[in-house]
Simulated assay, not measured.
Amino acid sequence: MVIDSAALTPSRPAASAPALPSTPMDFTDAWLANRRLSAHTRAAYRGDVAGWLAWCAAHELDPLTVTFLQVNTYARELESTPDRRTGQPLAPATVARKLSAVSSWYDFLAKLGAVPANPVAGADRPHVDRDHSATVGLTPAEVDALLATAAADTGPHALRNTVAVTLLADLGLRVGELVGLDLTDLGHERGHRSIRFTGKGGRPRRRALTPTAGYAIDSYLQQRATAAGVGVDTLTGPLLVTAAGNRLDRHAVFRLVRRLARDAGIAAWASLSPHSLRHAFATTARGEGVPLEDVQDAMGHADPRTTRRYDRDRHNLDRDPAYAIWAARSRRKP
């Protein structure tokens, strides 16, 4: 008699496959929850995907069955869409960023098995010059003038504003990193005053505070503590706050940089942003001879090519390595 060995094996209930999200926005929530992102990046990605889903709905397309052809049509329409702030067509970098967010969303869906492949992968994305940035930069003298204007201000928020622009200038922080700072992020490490924060991509970062930044922070926090009738060590919450005690937002920092630049007599004040100070940080650091890899680490760039793009003086002929080669050869001559 042949015994069926399978019949002797206790039966087990089949494992049920995990339930997939039921709507595209549910997919978006799951996708964002799966990634370590800053609040600003999370909001930007959500907006980019929401824009794509709204376009699909307007064209009666199922976003889970579209092809690269529909993505191409969407991209071309984006390229002709006027920017709400400038009235000019969206910059190629903006279109590329939106498509990149949608592509990341589809990569996540593909891993879940909700779509067979990422339709953005085969789409025609706009060319973005990785060697150029549209951000208006600042010279070292202009940064000095902006900081001096902030220091000379006598308004009720003068000390807070000085902290904000000093951290942008001395550390090259992103505006999202700046406004996300909490008092608990301040510290000391191996003789350095330091600050910890979450960088792009959710990566933990730490930087040394310059003496000027440390002094500005101390003065500001002492003012806050005195106004509240408490000791500095009892203050809690965000580092930079409004009059109501709420966290200072990125829009206020944009307005601050432009106002100070205007008051400092900087001609391009209306085109500046907090990112202008980040570009100036990279350019000045490289101009002072700081190695590229150290500037890259300080700015939290994964790719050194990004750091080079921030260095506005990289094509200066004064820095042409031909001079170093010539000088070395001259020293070798008897």
Rank of each mutant, 00 (worst) to 15 (best):
S11Q: 11
D26T: 03
F27W: 15
L32C: 05
N34G: 06
R35M: 11
R36Y: 00
R36V: 00
L37N: 11
S38K: 07
A39E: 15
Y45L: 09
G47H: 12
W52P: 08
H59V: 09
D62V: 13
L69S: 15
T81N: 08
P82S: 07
R85K: 14
R97Y: 12
S104M: 11
W105G: 06
D107N: 12
V120S: 03
V120C: 13
D131K: 13
S133L: 08
A134S: 01
L138T: 02
T139D: 05
P140D: 07
T149N: 02
D153R: 11
R160F: 05
A169I: 07
L171W: 02
G172K: 05
V175D: 06
V179N: 03
V179S: 04
R190D: 15
H192V: 04
R193L: 11
F197D: 06
G199R: 04
K200C: 12
L209I: 13
T210A: 04
T210I: 01
Y215R: 08
D218A: 14
D218H: 11
Y220Q: 03
A225D: 05
T242I: 10
A244S: 14
R247S: 02
V253S: 08
R255Q: 14
L260E: 05
L260I: 06
A261L: 09
D263C: 01
I266E: 03
H275T: 06
A280E: 04
G289L: 10
P291F: 11
P291R: 06
E293R: 14
R305C: 00
R309H: 02
R312F: 10
D313R: 10
R314D: 03
L317G: 00
D320C: 07
R331A: 11
